[in-house]
Design a binder for these strands. Structure first.
Lengths: 116, 116
DNA sequence: TCTTTATATGCTTTTATAAACATATCGAAT
DNA sequence: ATTCGATATGTTTATAAAAGCATATAAAGA
């Protein structure tokens, strides 16, 4: 009988929920990170080859569900406006990324421990 | 500023992959457990209000992708046939369930440790 | 050989999700 | 007032995933 552990890979996903609603996951965090980098939802969407519409809806959900304000939007003005990540938003992103990393490390260790 | 950790919940899913293909996840494991309980794919499907077609396709994928034989099928015969979980199948199920539990415990501890 | 019951699949129809297209709006700066 | 670039949404179209329906097949036992 072949040993399984040598050929098994474990993949995981995790989400932050607030009030029974999912408000952060890997995809959303990437969007937020790109917004943080570019200062623009449109540019962030383009960067991850996602339609602006979709990205806008995603961000809308994040805002509706997050327990704290994640972004600050600006309409019109010199450069047409823009979107910036709030301080709380940055904290939430970091918390998620760190959490994800810890879980990944734990899983890696556990895989090594698997014996059949 | 409100503290986030008191209101955040973390949800996760994990999958076992073999050869870049997902072959076990929560839903599939439940199907297998029900097959193990009933000895029948049809009964298992019914039990989790899933169409037989769907369950059969799910099981087909599991079999195609798992590194070891998970079930043994029997066509025809006295009671029309049936499906039983192999010894390796049972081991895979247990491994998955145990793994999932450990990750859940780890996550629970990490949540408690979150501070903002 | 006919019955029984679970597995094995083809085919069609819904439903859900995502993509695509089209505009409207906002407000600083010119 | 007009321009400009980004946000804000309604509407429609295309794709994909799930459901539903129908039927064939296997093989032990009566």
């Amino acid at each position: 009988m072949k040993k399984i552990n040598k050929q098994i890979e474990v993949v995981f996903r995790l989400w932050f929920y607030s009030n029974k609603d999912k408000f952060l996951g890997k995809g959303r965090v990437e969007l937020l990170q790109r917004i943080d980098d570019t200062g623009s939802l449109a540019k962030a969407a383009e960067g991850m080859k996602m339609s602006y519409r979709q990205a806008w809806q995603m961000l809308k959900e994040i805002n509706e569900r997050a327990p704290v304000p994640i972004v600050e939007k600006h309409l019109g003005g010199k450069n047409g406006g823009g979107t910036i990540i709030t301080k709380e938003g940055k904290k939430a992103i970091k918390t998620f990324v760190d959490f994800e990393l810890k879980v990944a490390e734990f899983i890696k260790k556990e895989i090594a421990r698997l014996k059949f």
